[in-house]
Amino acid sequence: MAQAIASGILTGGLYGIIAIGITLNWGMMRVINLAHFSFSFLAAYFTYQITVDTGIDPFLTLFVTIPLFFIFGVALQWFFETFEIEDFMSLLVTFGMFLIFESIMRERWTADFRTLSSTEVAYKTEALRVLGLSLTVTRLAVFLVAIAISLGIWIFLNRTYAGKALRAISQDRAIASAYGVNHRQMALLLGGIAGASAAIAGAFIAVIFVLRPDGATDLIGFIFAVVILGGLGNTAGAFMAGIFIGVVQNVTGFTSLGPGFAPLITFLVLIFGLLLRPEGLFTGIDTWLAKMLSGRQT
């Protein structure tokens, strides 16, 4: 059971990374970006392809994919800004994009399962032993990176000028621009950050998961559960919720119920979460973090 919880915490890190991009866009820009899932999987396929073609370590591909998906993210955000796509409309427009990306991936990489085997990634099944627990190094890395990203973005949003400007925009666009905040620039920056986070998620997806063009569909439900439970726009909350969902899934899979019940339990949790606290279960982490990091919240 301890092992199941530990693995769940680590897997939850990946959910957290993917959810961060969604929650930023949704919470800050009121754009529900389904294309983020496509970006993550596209990045995973890029990682896969570059690794297979050149034989380099999959994580070195991040030097290519992060800038690339930063640009993709900016371009997408530019599109949203230009056509003033928000709220429900954004969900539908990005759903159209989601379908298109899926068909592109299927056309390019076929429906075959693609996976980086242990021959391409020597450390794929390596594990550390800690207190009798086996922690896969790739998942451990996911977890640490997830902490780094969510903390980094949290500090960026709360401690830097650009971040504060962004938050100001998300709270009241008119007043923010009256104070000279360039809304458009800030939005593009945010889109870029979300895109870059998709690239990082992609690298981990490529190493840990089996790639299918429609693999993103399986994740949508779980990631939205994470986003909602974490509270919109709350990256630290998303990280915590990611871990929570990861643990719920792994523990369900470990018990006699089996993994078949994992979606059932996860979504029941989400439904009750929505009914009892629609603003999110893990929003408290935000204030706690603020206190921890010297307490002078602005």
């Binding site: 092992q3 199941a4 693995s7 693999g215 399986d218 792994n250 369900t252 993994p259 078949g260």
Partner: peptide, 17 residues
Amino acid sequence: NVEFPTGTTDFGPIAQQ
């Protein structure tokens, strides 16, 4: 004796059992 849904990618919990 454990069942899992088609499309499962994370076999960690089953492997542990």
